[in-house]
Amino acid sequence: MTHETLGVVLAGGLARRMGGGDKPMREIGGRTILDHVIERLAPQCDGLVLNANGDPARFAAFGLPVVADTVADNPGPLAGVLAALDWAAQNRPQAQFVVSVAGDCPFLPRDLVGRLHEARERDEAELAVAASGGRSHPVIGLWKVALRGELRHALVEEDLRKIDRWTARYRLATVDWPAEPVDPFFNANTVEDLSEAERLAKLAG
């Protein structure tokens, strides 16, 4: 059974460890990290949006809708997930699910969405998240659009910020990918990580 799934790339990080700016716009192999993310995720989804705050024009070259947080004060990735759930409800009412990924993960698995759905159905879960090498990556997850009201309440009324505190409230499926030869959820947080990503890109294919 297939479910219409919207993809959201969470591109709103402040990149403090890289001296500021948009991490997804840094380059690996002559292309932006965001180009790598889109190339891997787009074929798996029924449409993509970017979650980012500030001037959306800086992402114009990618030709994707840019959706800003709908909760004030930059509460983190959960606000980006909520923004995508709200956008899907308003613009893609047939989409039951949103899959979220970090905008600084250039080596995302090409079977991400399919495996998350399979695990969610197998475990009769409401949400699904990715893991690699035994470590969970809660930003990489599959979310039910129908839960957006509950998520908004948690963010606004309860000031909840941590993704794993939110997912702990629901039946959660976790899907593990091998971390060798390349961790598919490697994220480029520092200038040194960019050098490592250049090396890994040759292995990732």
Rank of each mutant, 00 (worst) to 15 (best):
R165Y: 01
R17T: 08
L116P: 03
R115G: 04
V139F: 12
I163M: 07
G47R: 00
S100C: 03
A188Q: 09
G114W: 04
G76N: 13
V182R: 09
A173T: 05
M25I: 08
M1R: 09
T190L: 09
R26I: 06
E118N: 05
H36F: 11
R171C: 02
W177R: 01
L78K: 13
A154W: 03
M1A: 13
H137Q: 08
L112A: 03
V66T: 06
M1L: 10
T32V: 11
W143C: 01
G205S: 08
R161E: 10
G7A: 04
L85P: 12
P56L: 15
V145Q: 00
R120C: 14
K202G: 00
L160E: 03
A119V: 07
D111T: 09
T167V: 12
A84V: 04
P109E: 10
G19F: 14
W87K: 07
T190E: 14
R169L: 08
F62K: 07
D164Q: 05
F186I: 06
D123C: 08
G20P: 04
G21S: 11
V113W: 02
N74S: 11
D164V: 03
V81E: 01
P106I: 13
G54Q: 13
P106M: 13
L34E: 03
E121C: 08
G80H: 08
H137D: 09
T174V: 15
R58P: 02
G63T: 07
V8F: 01
P93M: 05
L6K: 02
Q90M: 13
G7F: 03
A79Y: 15
G29W: 10
A125T: 02
R135K: 12
A89I: 04
L82W: 09
I33V: 15
D55R: 12
L78F: 06
E4N: 04
P138Q: 10
P93A: 01
F59D: 04
L6D: 06
D111Y: 12
R110G: 08
A173Y: 13
L78T: 04
V49Q: 04
G29E: 01
V9L: 05
A131G: 13
W87L: 02
G133A: 03
E118V: 09
R199S: 09
H117Q: 00
S195W: 11
E180K: 10
L10T: 08
N53A: 07
F185W: 15
G149Y: 12
I28Y: 05
D46Q: 06
G30W: 07
A61H: 08
I163D: 00
L41P: 02
I140L: 14
D111H: 05
V129C: 09
T167E: 00
R92M: 12
A201H: 01
I38S: 09
S136I: 15
L34H: 07
L108G: 05
A84I: 05
A60I: 08
F107I: 01
S136C: 10
T2V: 05
R171I: 03
A125H: 02
A128R: 13
A11T: 00
S195I: 10
V156K: 15
L155H: 11
R58Y: 07
G12A: 15
F107A: 00
L10E: 15
Y170M: 10
Q90D: 13
G30Y: 06
H36V: 00
L78M: 10
N187C: 12
V99H: 05
L6C: 09
A173P: 00
T5M: 13
R16W: 11
V71N: 05
T32R: 14
E39V: 11
G7N: 07
R161S: 09
G114K: 08
L14Q: 02
V129S: 10
A173V: 11
